[in-house]
């Protein structure tokens, strides 16, 4: 920051105006659409808040007590964490491997990159609708492939053990390209001279990977992992379109529960209590993340 020495009055005024404009814009926006609503949600989570009955009465911790006694909440939390763990790992590991591969080839690079990237730009609603059909236990594509190997009667979205993994697979398919592109960009930053120097020193590929490439990519890795965690904790659309939480409650995730409680049963207070819990869980996970990664600058 350089202190500005020569200033006319009008320049001073315009500078002040700019700062005030931005301050007002940011403060008003964040208080109306972000921080304000967060406080509102927090307060509302202690109330019997029902827009249909037009009620907003404080009932202390009742929403939370009910929530913690509700098996469905724990199930949804478990499903959500399971989903986040698998999809984030899949996206990062696969994305990294594909990026490494793409980085090493010369011919047809952009065509190959497109193949992996295209699902990223397809609208999730359309993708989920199509995959629902791919997974159809009778006439779907996956059934067709499996039956060629003599495996029949796999129910995918209707199998309690396969339903969530099926949605995970689709999500990784859709999102892996994003990680690929970011990792590819990160790989460009790996200094070629150090790689060459290490080759002269007799380092093999694996040593190069662990000692040069991964440390250089660390900030990118942290970025992808943290943004993925936050967004996958809020997975909704694919669940809403493909299973509506079923079969039974085997794909019930927290966001679907929030949607159902708030916008189908009109229990805004109860649903707010779930959002507060989700918020706390994400904060804890992000905090642990930072601790583990120690000092990644974000």
């Amino acid at each position: 920051m350089i202190e500005i020495k020569i200033k006319t009055n009008s320049q001073m005024a315009s500078q002040k105006a700019l700062i005030i404009l931005v301050s007002v814009l940011m403060i008003s926006f964040y208080s109306v659409f972000s921080i304000g609503p967060m406080i509102y949600a927090f307060v509302g989570s202690f109330a019997d808040w029902n827009p249909i009955k037009d009620t907003f009465q404080f009932i202390q911790f009742n929403n939370y007590i009910h929530l913690f006694n509700n098996q469905l909440f724990w199930k949804s939390l478990k499903n959500t964490i399971y989903f986040v763990a698998v999809v984030v790992t899949g996206r990062v590991v696969l994305g990294f491997l594909i990026a490494l591969g793409l980085n090493s080839i010369r011919k047809y690079k952009s065509m190959m990159r497109s193949l992996y990237f295209l699902p990223v730009i397809m609208p999730i609603v359309a993708v989920a609708l199509v995959w629902k059909w791919l997974y159809d236990p009778n006439i779907g594509f996956f059934q067709m492939v499996l039956s060629a190997f003599g495996i029949t009667n796999v129910k995918f979205l209707f199998d309690p053990d396969l339903a969530l993994p099926s949605i995970m697979l689709m999500t990784i398919w859709k999102d892996v390209g994003y990680a690929v592109i970011i990792f590819l960009a990160g790989l460009m930053d790996v200094p070629q001279s150090i790689i060459e120097a290490s080759e002269i020193d007799g380092a093999n590929k694996r040593q190069q990977l662990w000692n040069i490439i991964i440390p250089t990519l660390k900030p990118t890795l942290i970025f992808v992992i943290i943004t993925s965690i936050i967004s996958y904790f809020q997975t909704f659309t694919q669940i809403f379109i493909m299973t509506k939480g079923g079969p039974g409650t085997s794909t019930h995730v927290l966001l679907y529960m929030i949607y159902r409680e708030a916008f189908q049963y009109y229990r805004f207070g109860y649903a707010s209590a779930i959002t507060v819990c989700l918020f706390i869980v994400i904060m804890i996970v992000t905090f642990i993340q930072f601790k583990i990664m120690k000092g990644g600058e974000v």
């Binding site: 006694n69 098996q71 469905l72 129910k155 199998d159 039974g248 409650t249 229990r267 109860y270």
Partner: peptide
């Protein structure tokens, strides 16, 4: 669904149902 597809025991499925309807 819990009984037909998930092979949950009838008792468990009904317990879940009662709990979910408590509100």
């Amino acid at each position: 669904e819990e009984v037909a597809v998930m092979d949950l025991s009838i008792e468990e499925a009904l317990n879940n149902a009662v709990q979910q309807l408590s509100l």
